[in-house]
Structure formats: structure tokens, C-alpha cells
Design a binder for these strands. Structure first.
Lengths: 140, 140
DNA sequence: CTAAATGCAAATCATTTGCAAAGAG
DNA sequence: CTCTTTGCAAATGATTTGCATTTAG
């Protein structure tokens, strides 16, 4: 029963485990992209029933609990990913393509920055804006 | 005439220099916080006339040109800062307070990450989520 | 049983857009 | 003069909310 792991996860964070929360978590665990709320609803609704407002409410709850990470790539809608899939991103400013990467070496450096400021790091969001090497640069 | 610098800046980026663009740039250059579009409009409108839609259009243009940096702190509205004030941020998840910092050592590390992925870094956004040291942690 | 979660539809809020008038180069 | 920018008001689109109903613990 794959649901047990997710149920435990919710309980560990003091959240009730509902059918709908399971659906949303499963969608995010199965997604390799970064779906927005409407897309998560679309995927979760396949064969099931769930309202969009419920998806929004669940995403807000799960984000607050840290089970889900909310991202913004500047296209007007928030995107989400499961913490288990958490990683950083590089956005190709020409094509809009998103490249994921995971640079473990950054964690300690960033932690020390927070510490120096008198804080304990909880999480961080890093987004690189870049263009493919060799791209023609318009200096007109 | 302080307007000359801004005029040059616009011209260098192929943008027409208008009274309204000057107003928005001046507001951002004078702001130490991270005003959202509506707040920028409010500040620019003091003693002048400018419509909100114009502020939005200008911010989009200036962002695309790289004269202004668009940020998202997760409260539903985009925030802006002048490139000349560009820096990274730490968000105190308890109070919502934003602490600015500038860690020069990060730049080369992040550039190398982009390079490794086959890209040339244009810019990056780093946001730390943290809690004050010594804050009581609720492990209920 | 009781507090929390959900559906539905209406409400909000930020941001965008169509079109005619005003302005920059 | 020609192309771009701006105003205004209406349109869009994402996200939120009130309230009655259902469900988890």
C-alpha cells in the first residue's frame, strides 16, 4: 500500500490525511515537471473528483507544512514540487526551458550566510537565468 | 540634472526616455525596500500623474531590458528593485521580515554551475527562508 | 461528536489588453 | 511624420472566501 508512506508523512506534520491530500501528493511525487495548481487539479481529477479550490487550499497547507515547495518562474502562476523532488533551477531566458540541477556544495555555504545574519536556514530558492553558450548576442 | 544619467541608461538599452519611465526609475533608485507595482505607482504619483497600467507596462519593459529586477516573495504580487540596488534576500519565515545581503563569493560558484550545464549566466535569484536563531521550535 | 476539510459559486486582486489620443525622435 | 507610449476602462486569470455539507480522528 503506497498510501501508507504519505499518510505517515502527513501525520508527522500534524496534518489530517485525506483522500484529496493523498491525490495531490501522489501527483506531485509522480511529476518531473513543475505543475501549476490548475495542472495539478487536472492530473488529480483523472478518474477522481476534486475541486480546484480544494487543490489551492491543499497546496497552501502542504506548502506551509513544508511538504511541498512553491516556486515562481515569473509566468504569473505559482508552480509546485514535492520536497522529495526539491532541486534548483536554471531558466533558459531564450526558450523558457527549465533545467534542473542539484549542487550539494551550496547548502553549507548558504547555511553559513544565514548563520552570519543570525538565522537558522530552513530552505532556500535559487534560480539561475542564463542563455545557452554560443547563443548569438544581439548588441544592436 | 540627475535625469541625464537615467536618460543615458534608457538610451543604452534602446529604450525611449519618457517622463514616466524617469519617474519609475527614480522611485526604484530611491527605494530601499521592494515595492510592488501598486506601491511604485503610489510613490510615483505623488505630485505627478501616471496610470497604473502604465506603471505595469514600464516595469515589464524595464525588467525585460534588465534595468529592473523582478522578485517574488510569495505574497501574490511581484516586487521590484533597481539593478543598481540588486542583492539577495533572507526572509524571516516567522515575521516576514526581509533581510538583504550581498555575498560576492557566490557569483563565481553560481557561474560555474551554469557553465557546467552549458550556459552563460545572466543573473540569478537567491532567497533564503530562515528563522531567527534561538527561536522556539514547536515540535508538538 | 467536534474540529477540520471540501464543493460551489461569488468575490478579490494583480496584471493585461483594446483602442483612441498624446508624445518622442 | 511615424512609431511608441500612455490613459481609461473593460477583460483576464489566478487565487481566495463564505457558507452549507461531509469526513477524519
Amino acid at each position: 500500500m503506497p498510501g501508507h508512506r504519505l499518510e505517515q508523512l502527513c501525520h508527522d506534520h500534524g496534518l489530517r490525511f485525506t483522500e484529496h491530500r493523498r491525490m495531490v501528493l501522489e501527483v506531485l511525487d509522480a511529476s518531473t515537471d513543475h505543475p501549476a495548481a490548475s495542472e495539478i487539479h487536472r492530473r488529480a481529477a483523472v478518474g477522481h473528483s476534486i475541486s480546484v479550490s480544494t487543490v489551492y487550499r491543499i497546496l497552501k497547507t502542504l506548502s506551509a507544512a513544508g511538504l511541498v515547495v512553491r516556486r515562481d518562474f515569473g509566468d504569473g502562476k505559482a508552480r509546485y514540487e514535492s520536497v522529495t523532488r526539491r532541486h534548483d533551477h536554471l531558466v533558459d531566458v531564450r526558450s523558457g526551458a527549465i533545467v534542473e540541477f542539484d549542487e550539494a556544495a551550496l547548502q553549507p555555504i548558504i547555511e553559513s550566510i544565514a548563520a552570519r545574519l543570525g538565522y537558522r536556514l530552513i530552505d532556500y530558492r535559487l534560480e539561475l537565468l542564463a542563455e545557452a553558450r554560443g547563443a548569438v548576442i544581439d548588441r544592436s
